[in-house]
C-alpha cells in the first residue's frame, strides 16, 4: 500500500506541475480535471470519504465542466493565452521557491501539532448520540456548528449575487449548440443522465444522515443535472429570475433560520432542537439547503439571473 500511496503522491505533484506550467489553456484544463481524480483518490486514502465526495462532485466534476464550457465559449477556442505573456524567469523561480518553502513550513508545523484531550473534535464525538444523526460530519455541520453552516449558505448567496453582477453570462439567452456535429447522442444523454444525476444527488443528501454525503455534495450533483439540461438545450439562460427560482435560491437560508427561530420558545436557545425532533428537522433542513445549493451552482454556471424552458 505504501508503494500505491507513493505513486499517487508522485502523480499528484507531476499533474499539479503540468497544470500550472501548461502554455495551452485547454491542456491546463484537462490536467486540472485529471488532477481532481487523483485528489479524490488521495482523500479516500486519508480516510476522508466526505472530502473525496466533495472533490469528485465539485472539484473534478462541476468545476471541470465549467472550465471546459468556458473554453468552448472563447472566440475560436484560443490555443494560447496571448494576452498574458509568461512571467520572467526570476519571478517564476522566486514564486516556486517561496511556494516550496511555505509548504515545508506548513508541513512541519502541522506535523508538530498534537490534539488536546478535550479538543472540540473529541467533545463532539463524545456527544454524538444527542445530535440526532449518526454521521459525525453531518452532526457537526447541521447541529453543533449550525451557525457556521447558515453563514456559509449566506456566503454562497452573496457569491452568486457578486458573480452575476460582475461577469458576462456563459450561457446567454440563446440556445446551446454543437459546432456542426449535431450528434443524436445528445438527446439520449440528456434524458438518461438527468434523472440519474437527480436520483444520485437526492440519495447523497439523504445518505448524509447515516454516512458520508450531505447537502453540499448532493446539491452539487443536483446542480450537475441542471448543467446537463442547459448544455443539451432543455433549459436556457433568462435575463430575469422568476419568483419560484428566487424562492428556491433562498429556501435553504430561510428554512434554516425559521427552524432555529421556531424552536426558540421551546428550547430557549437559537437553533437548539427538541431531542425527539432533531432527526426530521435536520433532514428537512438538509434537503432545503441542497436545493438552494443546486440552484445557486446552476446559476453560477450559466452566469444568468434566471433559467427558463426554451420555446419550441
Amino acid at each position: 500500500m505504501i508503494l500505491f500511496d507513493g505513486v499517487l503522491a508522485l502523480l499528484i505533484v507531476v499533474l499539479a506541475w503540468r497544470c500550472v506550467t501548461a502554455g495551452d489553456l485547454y491542456l491546463g484544463i484537462v490536467v486540472f480535471i485529471v488532477m481532481g481524480l487523483m485528489l479524490a483518490l488521495s482523500w479516500a486514502r486519508l480516510d476522508a470519504p466526505d472530502l473525496a465526495l466533495a472533490e469528485a462532485a465539485i472539484g473534478a466534476g462541476l468545476l471541470g465542466v465549467l472550465l471546459l464550457s468556458t473554453w468552448r465559449a472563447l472566440p475560436g477556442h484560443r490555443r494560447q493565452d496571448r494576452d498574458h505573456p509568461p512571467a520572467r524567469k526570476a519571478v517564476r523561480w522566486l514564486a516556486g521557491v517561496a511556494s516550496v518553502a511555505f509548504g515545508l513550513v506548513m508541513a512541519a508545523l502541522l506535523h508538530a501539532l498534537q490534539p488536546d484531550e478535550d479538543a472540540a473534535g473529541a467533545l463532539a464525538l463524545g456527544r454524538l448520540t444527542e445530535a440526532g444523526v449518526e454521521q459525525p460530519v453531518t452532526a457537526v455541520l447541521l447541529n453543533f456548528r449550525s451557525y457556521d453552516t447558515l453563514l456559509e449558505m449566506g456566503v454562497l448567496l452573496m457569491a452568486l449575487i457578486g458573480a452575476l453582477l460582475a461577469r458576462t453570462p456563459l450561457a446567454p439567452y440563446g440556445a446551446a449548440t454543437d459546432d456542426g456535429t449535431d450528434s443524436p447522442l445528445i438527446p439520449v444523454l440528456a434524458t438518461t443522465f438527468t434523472p440519474l444525476l437527480l436520483l444520485v444527488g437526492a440519495f447523497l443528501v439523504w445518505a448524509g444522515a447515516y454516512g458520508p454525503g450531505g447537502a453540499f455534495q448532493g446539491g452539487a450533483v443536483l446542480g450537475g443535472a441542471g448543467v446537463v439540461l442547459v448544455l443539451c438545450n432543455r433549459l436556457q439562460g433568462a435575463p430575469e429570475a422568476g419568483i419560484l427560482l428566487r424562492l428556491l435560491l433562498v429556501l435553504g437560508v430561510k428554512v434554516f433560520i425559521l427552524a432555529g427561530l421556531l424552536m426558540l420558545p421551546l428550547e430557549g436557545a437559537f437553533m437548539a432542537y427538541p431531542p425527539g425532533l432533531t432527526y426530521p428537522i435536520m433532514i428537512a433542513i438538509e434537503f432545503c439547503l441542497a436545493t438552494s445549493i443546486a440552484v445557486s451552482l446552476l446559476l453560477l454556471f450559466t452566469g444568468t439571473h434566471g433559467v427558463r424552458v426554451p420555446e419550441r
Binding site: I33, A56, A57, A60, G61, L62, G64, V65, L68, S69, R72, A73, L170, A171, P172, G174, A175, A176, T177, D178, D179, G180, T181, S183, I186, L189, F193, L196, L197, V200, V221, G224, V227, V228, V230, L231, C232, T302
Partner: peptide, 18 residues
C-alpha cells in the same frame, strides 16, 4: 455520472451560434 457530463461539455457550445 460526471464523466458523461464532461463529455457533453466538450462537444456543446453553451453560447450558441458557434
Amino acid at each position: 455520472l460526471f464523466a458523461a457530463v464532461i463529455a457533453i461539455a466538450f462537444v456543446r457550445n453553451p453560447k450558441g451560434g458557434a
